[in-house]
């Protein structure tokens, strides 16, 4: 290219001096955002907030935002993660506040830590989902879940843009429990939980392709013919490394030096 002298970057940009990891939530009606929508919203919020984000080099520089395992379109989440590369050192608490203000309500930045090894991707291998099932009787749900857990393998088929995929839901399923809204944990998927609504909580191991809440419901349909009368509402409650007792270790845990906001 004529405009670039040999030995020079096409678009010399300041180097990355700090990386910060963020946890954010996708709530309410914004659960209908796709991953691309969220990425765009963050790119703009970063600019609006004046965050000194570093950029990739070249003719088409992009802000350095690294994403991990986005919750599917239509599902809410309390535990989405990203890492931002910065050209200056920034106080994570200030970043949380500035970014949260610049984002629309419903994309809410919850906490941030300065990144250190291991990589974020190596700190997550499982997800806990809470799936609200309005109109499904708790007893029916329990029976279906028991039937699913009794199997060794339950394969469902998902149609993806790259063709049909066979997914073994049971194999990825670590645990599944049923509660009702009146005595269950307070959910944050936007609308208030319907009283008496059955809630299924599952922990799934990260697989490729990932087992989504829809796939779990598909498996319940396969083993027990369970079909919710209205669309279920799923919320990702946590991500992390699965320990021996079935708990998820907080991906930001060991780096957390600032108080939670």
């Amino acid at each position: 290219m004529a405009r670039v002298r040999p030995g020079e970057a096409a678009n010399p940009a300041p180097p990355t001096v700090q990386r910060i990891r963020l946890r954010f939530a996708k709530r309410g009606r914004l659960r209908f955002l796709s991953h691309r929508d969220i990425a765009r919203a963050f790119e703009r919020a970063v600019r609006r907030a004046g965050v000194p984000v570093s950029h990739s080099h070249g003719f088409s520089p992009h802000p350095r935002l690294s994403w991990i395992g986005a919750a599917p379109t239509g599902t809410a989440s309390e535990a989405e993660y990203l890492e931002i590369g910065l050209t200056r050192e920034v106080d994570p608490a200030v970043l949380v506040d500035a970014l949260d203000r610049a984002l629309p309500s419903g994309l809410d930045v919850l906490e941030a830590v300065v990144a250190s090894p291991p990589a974020l991707a190596d700190r997550i291998d499982a997800t806990r989902w809470a799936i609200e099932l309005p109109g499904v009787a708790e007893a029916d749900l329990r029976a279906a879940v028991d039937a699913l857990l009794a199997e060794e393998s339950v394969v469902i088929e998902r149609v993806t843009p790259s063709g049909r995929k066979q997914i073994d839901v049971r194999k990825a399923l670590v645990s599944a429990t049923v509660v009702t809204a009146s005595n269950g944990p307070g959910l944050v998927s936007g609308a208030a939980a319907v009283a008496g609504c059955a809630i299924l909580t599952v922990v799934v191991r990260q697989t490729t392709p990932a087992v989504r809440p829809d796939d779990v419901l598909g498996a319940l349909d396969v083993v027990a013919g369970l079909t919710p009368p209205v669309p279920a509402r799923a919320t990702r409650m946590a991500q992390g490394l699965l320990d021996d007792s079935g708990h998820l270790a907080d991906p930001l845990g060991s780096d957390r030096v600032t108080a939670q906001i």
Binding site: R29, L30, F32, L33, S34, D37, R44, T73, G74, P104, S105, G106, A191, V230, P231
Partner: peptide, 23 residues
């Protein structure tokens, strides 16, 4: 009318276009 609309959204393409909430 959002409470009536919301259950329909998982069944349509690009539901985000109907939810508003733009900056």
């Amino acid at each position: 009318v959002f409470p009536d609309l919301e259950p329909l959204l998982p069944r349509v393409s690009k539901p985000v276009q109907y939810v508003g909430g733009e900056l």
